[in-house]
């Protein structure tokens, strides 16, 4: 029925309780916790968040846990916080029993007809919540990613807010999984330089880190820090599979990788994954390439570490990229 999707969208907007949200945001604005810090050029403290994206039945349940993650990051003097992929989808849980699908049990394909009608309300809720919290805690925020509909096209988009709550970068996922193709999501058209970030920071999304090309492009654009929100539908966590992503990429390209991870149960899939901060192995004391990482691949945790930007910058300058001037590279992607 044609009226079902607009009705579901209307019900979703109602269930997101914007009036209650306004009161919450207003209370934050009247009790600012801190001032925006002055960025330092030699080091930066980063918190990465492992967040449970199991659907919630009420928006404050999701929002309070996000706020708690910010609070923990602020307590550890974080200047950047990174969340995981698809972090807004749990908000679809407020529709439990109201539309024909359940976000925690029904497989994602059963939601396909509904997604176009429902993604923008949860995207707006996520976007505005992250914006208010970034400003309140004065932390540069890689808000994870969420699906959005723009000009009738679906994108899986990551957003960076600066410490004043301004959007300083958006980046759509460029390398999609087959499942996302089936959902009608469109891959991002380019890797955009994110020039307004106080640190040389670029965000990409999850599967983009499977491809070394992504990090090469980010490095070419001048990035020192590459933030990667991830979600991994693996019921059993595998360290080797996890190491194929951001950890592997920072061994090939001299940047730091900041991974925020989503875990839990969503659309009938069990999600596992660890949040972590990864560096080239020669820049870590134990030679592991892991500056910090969450202890378990399930549940929620916030971990924080300071990255020595001066050291990383020096490593970049010494990086032997003369190999990248070979003539044969011009033919690399020609076929």
């Amino acid at each position: 029925m044609n009226w079902q999707k607009p009705l579901a969208s209307y019900v979703l907007r109602t269930q997101l309780q914007w009036r209650e949200w306004q009161k919450w945001a207003h209370s934050l604005q009247t009790h600012t916790e801190t001032f925006s810090p002055i960025p330092q050029t030699e080091s930066v403290t980063v918190s990465v968040v492992q967040f449970n994206v199991t659907p919630v039945t009420s928006p404050p349940l999701w929002r309070d846990r996000v706020t708690q993650a910010f609070r923990q990051a602020k307590a550890q003097d974080a200047q950047i916080i990174v969340f995981g992929e698809d972090i807004a989808l749990p908000l679809l849980g407020v529709l439990a029993g109201r539309v024909g699908a359940s976000a925690d049990q029904n497989p994602l394909p059963s939601w396909t007809p509904w997604l176009r009608a429902l993604v923008n309300p949860v995207y707006q809720y996520w976007h505005r919540t992250m914006q208010v919290l970034a400003r309140h805690f004065a932390i540069t925020t890689v808000a994870g990613s969420a699906i959005t509909k723009t000009h009738s096209k679906l994108f899986n988009q990551s957003v960076i807010f600066d410490a004043n709550g301004w959007v300083i970068a958006t980046q759509s996922k460029m390398h999609l999984f087959p499942l996302e193709n089936d959902l009608g999501i469109i891959p991002g058209a380019d890797l955009t330089p994110q020039v307004f970030a106080p640190w040389p920071l670029i965000t990409v999304v999850c599967n983009d880190a499977t491809y070394f090309e992504t990090f090469r492009m980010a490095w070419r654009l001048g990035a020192l820090l590459v933030a990667v929100p991830i979600v991994d539908p693996e019921p059993l966590y595998s360290e080797a599979k996890a190491r194929r992503g951001t950890w592997a990429r920072v061994q090939e390209t001299p940047v730091a990788g900041l991974v925020g991870a989503s875990t839990g149960n969503l659309f009938g899939m069990k999600l596992t994954g660890k949040a972590g901060i990864y560096l080239p192995i020669s820049l870590t004391k134990d030679g592991s390439g892991i500056l910090t990482e969450t202890a378990s691949a399930e549940g929620e945790e916030v971990v924080t570490a300071a990255i020595d930007l001066g050291c990383l910058r020096k490593f970049q300058q010494e990086f032997a990229y003369q190999d990248l001037t070979d003539h044969w590279l011009n033919a690399l992607y020609s076929q």
Binding site: D190, M217, G222, L332
Partner: peptide, 21 residues
């Protein structure tokens, strides 16, 4: 199958003369 040759060709990181943020 998901390689983005169009984007890679545009950025051409293998060329000399790096730009910065």
């Amino acid at each position: 199958p998901h390689l983005r040759r169009d984007i890679y060709q545009k950025h051409k990181w293998w060329r000399t003369g790096r730009s910065g943020l």
